[in-house]
Design a protein around this nucleic acid. Structure first.
Lengths: 358, 358
DNA sequence: CGACCCGGTGACAACGTTGTCGGTACGGCG
DNA sequence: CGCCGTACCGACAACGTTGTCACCGGGTCG
């Protein structure tokens, strides 16, 4: 910029004015400066600008896996909203590792993002407190999280299941008696799917088609969404006056879903229908060659092309992303209202597999 | 940081030393500083650090659509490599709009990314020249691009097709007689798939199974990969002594692919087999209900679950991302060798649809 | 005709960090 | 006892930008 000023024969500040479209520059001068900028291939240094102004015009996005269709559509929606607000998106995959998640978030904070959108893997986000106090906005999406919100659903607070083991809390833990910051659960905005309601609708759909033994094959019980969907499953059974049987429920990673269902089917009095807890599991079950009536939570591409078409309870990943981002930007533009908790509806899409008779 | 120094009763510089693990600090002092850092919830300001040091430890990734499975897997691979090198990834979707692409790239440059990985939509990247001269590394992936490389494939340089129209080159164009920078094509590193070879293999596969009239349904001819794949198709025909017939070739957006094929099939002497130019088109053709022998370029999820399974020429999006990123980081660590052009092999995966008889 | 005002411009400090260099205390050695 | 070397630490400048304020010339109004 100094070079540009020199080349155009003006002061630094004038160049700054031109770059930022500030008023108070003669068209002639502006033209001279613009020419110099073009000629020297000058680009403003965003770091310096950020340092000076304090705001980075960028937000951080922490999701489980950038390559997962659900999250990538989610991310795209966030990007779209960010673009409209002139913001950039820093994104990173946590890979369900709370440690990696923490690292990513803190990295983003170091880069002074204006806000964060987090699909939390971990349950403990107390380390966020100083950042929140420092004015960084945060929205939790798809699952609840945040400092002080650990005891949310029933699934949380139980044994953390495999995968959450690696050396938790390496530092000296969050300061205990910090003056001014201590105590008081400060919860953040949260945008969720209506997991329980969706599962309820899907299972009820199967029951309505005559099934009385419906299996639930879901993800690890330690995952919030998984627990909620199981809750919806139970409610649907209860309401129909059907018994809840442990033997018809399996929770675990998608790779084991096929085998789990096979075991159920080979037992006495096998289920005639299956409700699957997410699309990875739905696909795993299909791949294992099972042909029972099936409703899956979460839509996936080509579900309509399979034979029979796969009936699903569709979430709206784009809507989730859009809503989260819009909420975040509302906070960034000064909304200081109470933390919100938004639940997005799901939609049952009948395609054939869920309408098969027992 | 000033606050931390004050709280710990030391100088700014000492805090800096502790934060950066620099030698020359007594354990006792370091401990005092660390305690103060923890207590105050201090995080270093990356912007200031960048301003001072010059390197941002971040790279920019410009792809067509973050939500597209191909690119999201690609992006994930890039992220993985970046993580290993301690870098962050800024990513953005260009949406096939050269203007948006340019904007994104320049934004990234303003943020002083160390390097760029670009899946180019536009053909003209001359605006990159000042950045490249300023030391930013760039790798073009999936399609060639970059300043001076416009006249690459045969498809380029022709009429730009619909979609590239919106007000090109708004400024005063790249400086014409810039001293020191003018002329001389400076090409960048490029990582591609073996598009022509893959298409050749796929079409040959169909021919080997007895087909003599093979249709090509591909994307707009203005897209590099599309042109290359068409080239492979022609070569396969030639080598088998089959005529190239315009009436068996359709290029255009995926939404029109189904209708295009329908038209071909309703003509006299219809094709008995179809080669599709990308997975979106493959799916469109399947959705249109066509049941000819089919080989598609690019693999997609559930291709194996359809009946019959869809034979594809699989690319390796993760490999593409990994290779691109590794090449980029090699450049960043000082490799000043001649620009490379890497072509990744494809793999034919027979699943049934490509082995149907005429 | 002089005072005032205003639009255009420039000088300077400050944002938070780190590289450089200079200072101080302490231990060892002549 | 004095000198030197080393280890630790602090003051200061600089990175590139922008906010603040002062300046200056010309037009306007009293």
């Amino acid at each position: 910029m100094k070079d540009v000023a020199e080349a155009a024969g003006v002061a630094l500040k004038t160049v700054s004015r031109v770059v930022n479209d500030e008023p108070g520059v003669t068209p002639a001068t502006a033209e001279r400066v613009s020419a110099a900028i073009e000629r020297l291939g000058y680009r403003p240094n965003e770091s310096a600008r950020v340092l000076r102004r304090g705001s980075t015009s960028s937000i951080g996005l922490v999701i489980e896996d950038v390559a997962d269709p659900f999250y990538s559509v989610f991310g795209r929606a966030v990007e779209e909203v960010a673009l409209r607000h002139g913001s950039l998106v820093l994104s990173g995959s946590s890979g369900e590792d709370p440690l990696r998640e923490r690292e990513l978030i803190l990295t983003f904070c170091s880069r002074r993002v204006d806000g964060l959108i987090i699909v939390p893997s971990g349950t403990d986000h107390d380390y966020l407190r100083p950042e929140l106090d420092a004015g960084i906005a945060a929205v939790f999406a798809d699952r609840p999280g945040g400092p002080g919100t650990a005891p949310y659903g029933t699934a949380y607070g139980t044994t953390p299941g495999p995968g959450s083991a690696p050396g938790h809390d390496p530092g000296s833990g969050p300061g205990h008696d910090v003056p001014g910051v201590s105590g008081g659960a400060v919860s953040c905005d949260t945008v969720l799917c209506d997991n329980a309601g969706g599962a309820y609708a899907g299972v009820s759909h199967l029951i309505r088609h005559g099934h009385r033994r419906v299996a639930f094959v879901g993800d690890r019980a330690s995952i919030f969404t998984s627990g909620e969907r199981l809750r919806g499953y139970r409610r649907a059974l209860e309401e129909a006056g059907l018994p809840f049987e442990e033997s018809l429920v399996s929770t675990g990673p998608a790779e084991e879903a096929g085998a789990a269902l096979t075991r159920m089917l080979s037992g006495g009095d096998p289920p005639t229908a299956v409700f699957t807890g997410n699309s990875r599991i739905t696909v795993a079950v299909l791949r294992a060659g099972h042909r029972q009536a099936l409703v899956g939570f979460d839509d996936f591409e080509l579900a309509d092309l399979l034979v029979p078409g796969v009936t699903v309870v569709a979430q709206d990943p784009a809507g989730l992303g859009r809503t989260s981002a819009e909420l975040l930007f509302r906070r960034l533009s000064g909304d200081r209202g109470a933390p919100e908790r938004i639940e997005l509806p799901t939609r049952l899409i009948p395609r054939g597999s869920g309408e098969l008779p027992p």
